[in-house]
């Protein structure tokens, strides 16, 4: 019972922070709302026997990625954003489509559940020998460095390529012209 109450509370915070992110007119506030949302998801990971992923979620997402977001927002001075769009018909259409998609998802969901199609999901396997070690850093590491060793090494190459790409995309041109000078010479 207490698990349901905790789940409901954290789920409420997650949904409210997601809606807050959608509606805020300040990009910094939106980023902070997203941090709350990511921490809520880390708590869900804890509830789903994934402590390793919860810690990775907090360090990588709420830490590194959101710091990068905040850094770019402040660097560009793009804090103030408007909700207005040049396409007047788009916002109502998007909301209508979202409501239709929510309705369709839940209809499908309850239909499948009523017909017992999601039987593996309904009962949680409660074999203590399995659940005790499931999702521990040891168990995850064993699979990560066993069956997934090659993909794991390839993500290292991927990160290197991304680092080089980000440097090349954001560097100044070889002439060493500053941004302001180049903007002036373009005009």
């Amino acid at each position: 019972m207490i698990g349901y109450i905790l789940f409901g509370l954290v789920a409420l915070v997650a949904i409210v922070s997601a809606v807050g992110m959608l509606l805020s007119t300040n990009a910094i506030h939106a980023a902070l709302f997203l941090v709350i949302n990511l921490i809520c998801i880390a708590l869900f990971y804890l509830g789903l026997n994934a402590p390793f992923l919860a810690m990775v979620q907090i360090t990588v997402y709420a830490g590194a990625i959101m710091v990068l977001f905040l850094f770019v927002i402040m660097l560009l001075g793009a804090e103030q954003v408007t909700l207005k769009s040049q396409l007047k018909w788009q916002a109502p259409l998007a909301i209508v489509l979202a409501v239709v998609m929510i309705a369709a998802t839940f209809l499908l969901f309850f239909n499948v559940q009523a017909s017992g199609g999601l039987s593996p999901l309904a009962p949680i396997s409660e074999d203590p020998r399995q659940t005790e070690t499931f999702g521990s850093p040891y168990a995850v590491g064993e699979v990560l460095f066993g069956a997934y060793l090659l993909p794991f090494e390839m993500t290292g190459v991927l990160l290197l390529v991304a680092m080089i790409g980000a440097i090349i995309l954001t560097r100044n041109e070889a002439g060493g012209m500053r941004d302001e000078q180049r903007a002036a010479s373009n005009e």
């Binding site: 959608l22 949302n37 954003v81 909700l83 979202a98 969901f109």
Partner: peptide, 23 residues
């Protein structure tokens, strides 16, 4: 599912590239 749809609405509604990215 709910969070995914909220993110989708964000991509459709917001016009700021950084906020679309966050969604």
């Amino acid at each position: 599912g709910i969070l995914f749809i909220l993110g989708m609405v964000g991509v459709l509604l917001r016009r700021n590239a950084i906020l679309i990215f966050m969604s």
